Simulated scan of single mutants.
Amino acid sequence: MAAPVTDAGEFESWLNDRLDSLEVDREVYGAYILGVLQEDETDEEKGDTLQGILSAFLDEDSLDNVCGEIIRQWTERSARSTSKSDVDVEVQAIASMIEKQAQIVVKQKEVSEESKKRKEALLAQYANITDNEDEAEEEETAGGACVPSGEKSLFKNTNVEEVLNRKKQQRDQARDDSQKKKEQDKMQREKEKLSKQERKDKEKKRTQKGERKR
Rank of each mutant, 00 (worst) to 15 (best):
E183P: 00
V5I: 10
T141D: 05
K182R: 14
R80A: 03
M187A: 13
R206E: 05
I98E: 06
L123P: 01
T75Q: 09
D40S: 08
V91G: 01
N165R: 12
K209L: 14
A95I: 08
R26W: 08
A93K: 13
K181S: 05
E120D: 06
A3T: 11
E60Y: 11
A95C: 05
K156D: 09
S96R: 13
G9D: 12
T75I: 13
A31I: 12
K196E: 09
Y29K: 02
K167A: 13
D59H: 10
T207A: 11
C67M: 06
E44Q: 09
E23F: 15
Q208A: 12
V36F: 01
S112K: 12
V160K: 14
L122F: 06
L123D: 15
L63H: 07
D20R: 11
K196R: 07
M97K: 12
R214V: 06
V111L: 15
R212W: 14
E39H: 01
Q73K: 15
Y126N: 06
R72M: 11
E76F: 03
Q208K: 12
L122T: 08
N128E: 09
L34E: 04
L123R: 15
E99D: 11
V147P: 00
A121C: 00
L37M: 03
D201V: 04
R214D: 04
I70A: 05
K117R: 14
V66Y: 11
E161T: 03
S62F: 05
K100W: 08
K168E: 11
V163Y: 13
Q184M: 12
Y32R: 14
K119Q: 04
Q108K: 14
Q184G: 00
W74E: 00
S83I: 03
A136T: 07
K109G: 05
K202H: 02
E69T: 09
S149Q: 08
Q173T: 15
A79V: 05
L63N: 08
R26T: 08
K204W: 04
V66L: 07
Q51A: 10
G9W: 13
E162M: 08
P148T: 00
E39I: 01
D172A: 05
K84Q: 09
A8F: 10
R118E: 04
Q101F: 08
D48N: 11
K119M: 03
R199F: 00
L164P: 00
S81L: 02
G9Q: 13
S112R: 12
D88Y: 10
Q73A: 09
I70N: 00
K213L: 13
L194T: 05
I70R: 03
G9N: 14
V147Y: 02
R212P: 00
S81K: 03
E135Y: 10
A102E: 08
G47S: 11
E110V: 09
D131P: 00
V147E: 01
K119S: 03
V106S: 12
G68K: 14
P148M: 01
I33K: 00
I98Y: 03
I71V: 02
Q179D: 15
A145L: 12
E120I: 06
